[in-house]
Design a protein around this nucleic acid. Structure first.
Lengths: 171, 171
DNA sequence: TCCGGATATTTCGTACACGAAACATCCGTG
DNA sequence: CACGGATGTTTCGTGTACGAAATATCCGGA
């Protein structure tokens, strides 16, 4: 069972967790609001800008990009297709894969919306000093590494296949 | 309309956004996995630990705590009540409010689960050096302040009530 | 006291979001 | 060629998540 972590948490830790949650949820909220001005939802805006930038994508690569399950993206594309924003095109070389392509309407909308998803987040970040940026990235990377190794530990444990030599991150 | 941000984004910015998204989604995923071991969902686990810590809460204060809309929490509580984890109790002093109370079963479960939500996140954070912690918090706070003022600007703009002296964030 | 605005909760409709199972297709090996 | 495992997509069931409207109750004046 997961070790019980005594609640002697440093105040900074709570504040940091709070802040990260705030930043993340606020970015999503803002993207959503922006999208709504064009009759879109948040994920739909993300998909449109992604397709505009990268061209046609298979459903799986789309799900990878937006970090969602295939089944989730199927639904998003269903609704976008219903609205005439995208079209599904079966690949001729591999008839399992489906390419998602912007329709005329979708392309027009994409050009109209001059904003990246997570834009506010990004623009706030670019205002930081270079040294702050680098410092922030360094610390976050350290944090991520810790979480990743924690996760991998859990996974292998759950699978009964303890892997060795997986790079421990000792400070 | 939102200013069009040219895509000359610094590489650090992308990496930071990526990392924060990773940390947030991973924490949620882990909470969810942990909850599943006890037949709960992520939000349900959060609610149970919250009620254990704070005692009975009205539905609104519960929604504030977990940063969700009342209508969302209504659904969560509906399902938890169906499972016999919590009970609804109408307040006698103000008959509009409903208090949510852990049942016997809910209390037992809460004691059984020795982990805070977002625990992995927190434990990774507590491993950072104190100076890293402080630095991280300082930078994130700066970031949050920028986003907050941006949001407030948007809101007043949308409401046709342009407020002045609200700190414009021009680079 | 009576009423209109404020506050607390629920209902309703829509859109994610996920995992498991179904389904179709591909591909390597015998 | 056949077939069994791998891969890509969809279907299905459940659980958030939100905003707008409905409902119930409270409260401060006229």
């Amino acid at each position: 069972m997961a070790a019980s972590l005594p609640p002697d948490t440093k105040p900074e830790v709570d504040a940091i967790v709070e802040t990260i949650i705030y930043l993340y949820t606020e970015s999503r909220r803002l993207t959503k609001g922006l999208a709504a001005q064009f009759g879109l939802t948040g994920p739909q805006l993300t998909v449109i800008k992604l397709l505009e930038e990268l061209g046609d994508l298979s459903l799986s690569s789309l799900s990878e990009r937006i970090r969602a399950q295939n089944s989730t993206v199927t639904g998003i594309i269903d609704r976008m297709e219903r609205e005439g924003l995208v079209k599904r095109e079966r690949s001729t070389t591999d008839r399992r894969v489906v390419y998602i392509r912007l329709s005329e309407k979708g392309q027009k909308l994409a050009r109209e919306i001059q904003v990246e998803p997570m834009e506010i987040f990004r623009s706030a970040l670019t205002d930081l000093s270079q040294s702050d940026l680098e410092h922030l990235l360094r610390i976050l990377a350290k944090l991520q590494k810790r979480v990743v190794s924690h996760v991998e530990g859990r996974v292998s444990e759950a699978m009964g296949a303890p892997r060795v030599g997986e790079e421990e991150d000792k400070p």
